[in-house]
Amino acid sequence: MKKLIAIAIFVFAGMSVAQAQKIAKMEFKSETIDYGEIKKGSDGVRVFEFTNTGDAPLVIEDVKSSCGCTVPKKPEEPILPGKTGQIEVKYDTKRVGPIRKTVTVYSNAAESVKALKIKGTILDVESSDEDES
Rank of each mutant, 00 (worst) to 15 (best):
M1I: 15
I5Q: 08
I5L: 13
A8D: 08
A8W: 05
A8G: 12
A8N: 12
I9T: 07
F10W: 09
F12D: 09
F12A: 11
A13C: 06
M15A: 02
V17L: 04
A18R: 00
Q19W: 14
Q19M: 14
Q19V: 13
A20T: 01
A20P: 00
Q21F: 00
Q21M: 03
I23T: 15
A24M: 14
A24G: 13
M26Y: 06
E27I: 10
E27D: 15
F28Y: 05
K29F: 12
S30G: 12
S30L: 10
E31W: 11
I33Q: 07
G36R: 02
E37C: 06
E37Q: 06
K39Q: 15
K39E: 11
K40C: 00
G41K: 14
S42F: 08
S42N: 08
S42G: 06
S42Y: 06
G44H: 09
V45A: 12
V45R: 13
F48G: 00
E49G: 04
T51Q: 04
T51N: 03
T51D: 01
T53F: 02
D55T: 02
D55Q: 04
P57H: 03
L58I: 07
L58K: 10
V59E: 11
V59F: 06
I60S: 08
E61Y: 09
D62W: 01
S65E: 07
S66G: 11
S66M: 03
C69G: 04
T70I: 07
V71F: 15
P72A: 13
P72N: 10
K73S: 10
K74A: 05
K74W: 01
E77H: 08
P78G: 01
L80G: 03
L80H: 10
L80V: 08
L80A: 10
P81I: 02
P81R: 04
G82T: 05
K83T: 11
G85F: 07
G85V: 06
G85I: 05
G85S: 11
G85L: 08
Q86I: 11
Q86H: 13
E88H: 09
E88A: 11
V89W: 00
V89E: 03
V89K: 03
V89L: 02
D92K: 12
D92W: 11
T93D: 07
T93P: 06
K94L: 10
R95T: 10
V96Q: 01
V96W: 00
I99S: 03
I99K: 04
I99H: 02
R100V: 09
K101W: 12
T102F: 08
T102W: 00
T104R: 03
T104F: 03
T104L: 03
T104Q: 04
Y106Q: 10
S107D: 02
S107F: 01
N108A: 05
A109D: 08
A109S: 05
A109H: 04
A110D: 15
E111S: 11
E111F: 10
K114E: 10
G120Q: 09
G120I: 04
G120D: 07
G120H: 01
T121S: 09
I122F: 01
L123D: 07
D124L: 03
D124M: 05
V125Q: 00
S128I: 15
S128E: 15
D129T: 14
E130G: 00
E130C: 05
D131A: 14
E132N: 12
